[in-house]
Design a protein around this nucleic acid. Structure first.
Length: 490
DNA sequence: ATGTGC
């Protein structure tokens, strides 16, 4: 005797999706509902189809209900993911000076299902995934390209109790010390690397990727890289007498450095963004915003590796600053430093979130940071105001006005030389793509963020070192072993 | 930003 009339064909007609749902439903019916009337079964199947969530613990249809669960609802598992149709709202500082591409990237990021809060800083420009100058808070998700390629890129300032006129009077001495304490160049490595506790971290041994990167990381420890990275002496003016303990208002010599985590961070970023993109395919422009959750293996690994790269970047600065302090025969009165490419666990609006700052300075209430200008324009020592709308963030610089290629085409060496002379700046290395004209007016950018930070002092560059033409691999033949030419000899 | 290959 035929017990009922439920077949694959009838299930299809009711609207059940093909494999694996139909076979699972058929099996459940055959196993558990052999003697149930067809009409009753049909009623149950309709209810199942309409609201599978009511059957997740059902004795008959639990498995079928799980298979019916729409995959897009679960943003923490692999596969294709849709953007929300409406993004979270976010504050934009200095909107009139921000290029359309950066705006568009931020609007895309705002539509991520994991997005909680965001903001766009006044120095924003187009990047890869999240724009440079983009801040994004997410729920339990870390976006490798929301941190950026140069993980832990940061500023570090030492303030020495020396009158800044010495930078002019003893220019050759300070120039020599700067050259001796630093190593610039893409791929540059020390022949006799420094030692630092960061290299003893057992995290290097926890992951095969980090193990493979450890030796080069050691050889690059204390180096600065290329691009917009620099090491410079300048005149520090402290205007706020109350903020820095042991540093009264007045003028000092400062050593300011800007660099990141070299090949270590770049390779961590490349590895985990690739993994994230495999795990979570996002549509169109959002593809580079693929994330990892903190409770999955890859996400936990990235978090660990990112923090190591942050510690490593910090160590690189400290090595430079220690070399200089030793040569000056002085301890700095104070040091100020901050990452501006990183992700932090923070509380925002009462919720624990992951805050990505990709080219943005942490600016929670009372937090100190450094916002550089250009090689001739002043940078600023700032204290955060804890503005919620900016997700406790501020800009990380003036922001580019011209792309590198545009700067190379439009700026002449003569104009650059004249500008350096006008500001009394001595430049070591550096290219036209880093010329002051390629950057926005830092004073105007600071005006856009008066609600985000208070200025407690400034830094006027005097002797600036950047990566020179000779250290730029891309200027040479592609197959040339360029890095051997400028490895430091110590 | 890095320094090697989609």
């Amino acid at each position: 005797m035929k017990s009922n009339i439920i077949t694959a064909k009838s299930l299809r007609a009711m609207g059940f999706p093909e494999s694996p749902v139909i076979p699972v439903v058929l099996e459940a019916v055959k196993k558990h509902l052999k003697h149930t009337a067809s009409a009753d079964i049909e009623a149950q199947l309709k209810a199942l189809l309409q609201a599978p969530e009511n059957f997740y613990n059902d004795s008959v249809f639990a498995t079928a209900a799980q298979k019916l669960k729409p995959p897009v609802e679960d943003t923490t598992t692999g596969g294709d993911i849709s953007l929300n149709s409406t993004g979270i709202s976010f504050a934009i500082y200095g909107a009139s000076g921000i290029e359309a591409g950066a705006m568009h990237q931020m609007y895309t990021a705002a539509k991520l299902p994991v997005a909680v809060a965001g903001a766009l800083m006044p120095d924003a420009h187009q990047g890869y995934g999240l724009p440079i100058g983009g801040v994004l808070a997410t729920n339990n998700a870390v976006i490798p390209y929301g941190v950026g390629v140069d993980i832990g890129c940061r500023m570090c300032l030492s303030i020495f109790d020396i009158v800044p006129t010495e930078l002019v009077q003893r220019e050759n001495f300070f120039t020599r010390e700067l050259l001796e304490a630093t190593l610039f160049g893409s791929g540059a490595q020390f022949k006799q690397p420094a030692n630092h506790a960061v290299m003893d971290s057992d995290v290097f041994d926890a992951l095969p990727l980090l193990k493979s990167l450890k030796d080069r990381a050691w050889r690059q420890l204390g180096s600065s890289g290329s691009g917009n990275h620099f090491a410079e002496f300048g005149a520090v003016h402290i205007v706020d007498a109350d903020t820095l303990p042991g540093v009264p208002a007045g003028t000092y010599i400062g050593l300011l450095t800007h660099s990141g985590s070299r090949a270590l961070g770049a390779n961590i970023a490349a590895h985990y963004t690739k993994l994230a993109k495999q795990l979570r395919r996002l549509p169109g422009d959002a593809a580079n915003l693929a994330w990892l959750t903190l409770d999955e293996e890859a996400g936990a690994e990235y978090w660990m590796a990112m923090n190591l790269a942050g510690d490593y970047a910090s160590a690189c600065h400290h090595i430079i600053h220690a070399k200089v302090a030793r040569q000056l025969g002085r301890r700095p009165l104070t040091m100020i430093e901050n990452h501006h490419n990183f992700a932090w666990k923070e509380t925002w609006n009462g919720q624990e979130v992951i805050v990505h700052r990709k080219g943005a300075t942490p600016a929670a209430a009372g937090v100190l940071g450094i916002i550089p200008g250009s090689m001739t324009a002043p940078g600023y020592i700032v204290k955060g105001r804890g503005e919620m709308a900016s997700v406790n963030s501020a800009s990380h610089g003036a922001g580019r006005l011209m792309s590198r290629s545009k700067a190379m085409q439009n700026i002449t060496h003569e104009a650059m030389k004249a500008e350096l002379k006008k500001h009394g700046v001595k430049l070591l290395g550096g290219g036209l793509d880093e010329a002051p004209f390629a950057y926005k007016d830092i004073q105007a950018v600071m005006q856009e963020q008066t609600s985000l930070v208070d200025i407690i002092g400034s830094f006027q560059p005097k002797i600036v070192q950047m990566c020179g033409d000779a250290q730029r691999g891309w200027r040479r033949g592609p197959r040339e072993k360029w890095h051997n030419d400028f490895v430091e000899g110590e």
